[in-house]
């Protein structure tokens, strides 16, 4: 802080003083901008709070009519039929099945691509491919959905006997392809952040490129890689369009990925687009399902937060 001694003001050059004086006209726009920015951040916070509030409120209403025990223990999900059953498992299993397939595709391939890009590719190739990965991540998921239904499923029908037109495998695989660029890109960031000195240390001990990559660099970047994996999993669990288009709308408890299934997200879409009257019990099911989905992804995101925090400490 400068001291404002009276002497200084008096001795100051008149022109300098005029130039340095606060200009009244500047303050008003500054204030307006500040309020606009504040309003913007408030809007996003309030929307989130609002969404969670609606979820909690509507699911509370749902659970006042349907016991939590039925929701968690029943194995049938038929809220839209005359004989209403509210067992969530068909939707959860459907979600887990497509997600598992997606993860089985995305994690290994994503990690291998990341290792290739970070450790083997030339800087030029790397700087070409990285932006392409980011573009791939921006393709609308509805495109992937039709890709699954119209291209991958017919292809799989030739190799997998008894594959239904709507099934878990095809959207699972395509979802994996959709998440792959994200896994590759984030894992590559984690690998790239490993100090080059560690690699030199390992090479100087007679490590081959493969040994250095897989036994030093990957373990050192493990928390970052794990964080990208968790993000990928929560993407897969929350993905809607691909499964809504290609997995079917049959909420039946099955562990056979060749059969049509329904995921939690696809169910929400189906009911939201249908003609279920607002305020009815059937209408409220979507909030209960959404609440569970929200909790699942929240847990995953919190886990990734803690993992990433650990990641920061790893080299020092």
């Amino acid at each position: 802080m400068a001291t404002r001694s009276a002497e200084r003001v008096i001795t100051g050059d008149e022109a300098v003083r005029a130039a340095l004086r606060r200009k009244a006209g500047r303050n008003i726009p500054e204030l307006i901008i500040r309020w606009i920015l504040l309003a913007c951040s408030l809007i996003s916070i309030l929307t989130t709070v609002g969404i969670v509030g609606v979820l909690v409120f509507e699911s509370a209403a749902f659970f006042s009519e349907v016991p939590l025990g039925d929701f968690l223990l029943d194995t049938q999900w038929t809220p839209l039929f005359a004989d209403k059953r509210f067992g969530i498992w068909p939707l959860v299993v459907g979600t887990l099945m497509t997600s598992t397939i997606a993860i089985a595709v995305a994690l290994p391939l994503g990690l291998l691509s990341a290792i290739y890009l970070s450790e083997y590719a030339s800087p030029r190739l790397r700087s070409t491919i990285k932006p392409i990965l980011e573009v791939l991540a921006g393709i609308p998921t509805v495109v992937y959905g039709f890709f699954a239904l119209l291209f991958v499923t017919p292809l799989l029908e030739r190799v997998i006997p008894n594959l239904a037109t709507f099934n878990a495998i095809s959207p699972g695989i395509v979802m994996g392809i959709m998440i792959l660029p994200m896994v590759a890109s984030l894992s590559e960031d984690a690998l790239h952040a490993v100090p080059v000195g560690l690699r030199y240390g390992a090479f100087a001990l007679g490590g081959t490129k493969f040994e250095v990559s897989t036994r030093i660099v990957v373990p050192a970047a493990l928390s970052g890689i794990a964080a990208s994996f968790i993000l990928a999993i929560s993407r897969a669990v929350g993905e809607t369009m691909i499964v809504a288009i290609a997995a079917g709308q049959r909420p039946v408890l099955t562990f056979d990925p060749r059969e049509p299934i329904q995921t939690m997200t696809a169910y929400i879409v189906q009911v939201s687009l249908g003609d279920v009257p607002a305020g009815s019990l059937a209408y409220r099911t979507i909030f209960a399902v959404a609440m569970l989905l929200f909790l699942m992804t929240l847990v995953l995101n919190i886990a990734s937060y803690f993992i990433v925090r650990r990641f920061r400490e790893v080299y020092e």
Partner: peptide, 22 residues
Amino acid sequence: FQKPNPFPKSIYENITWGARIN
């Protein structure tokens, strides 16, 4: 190297890493 660059592993594994791959 100029800057110490131990692997982010245990002391024990730092020693055995090179031996193991060799």
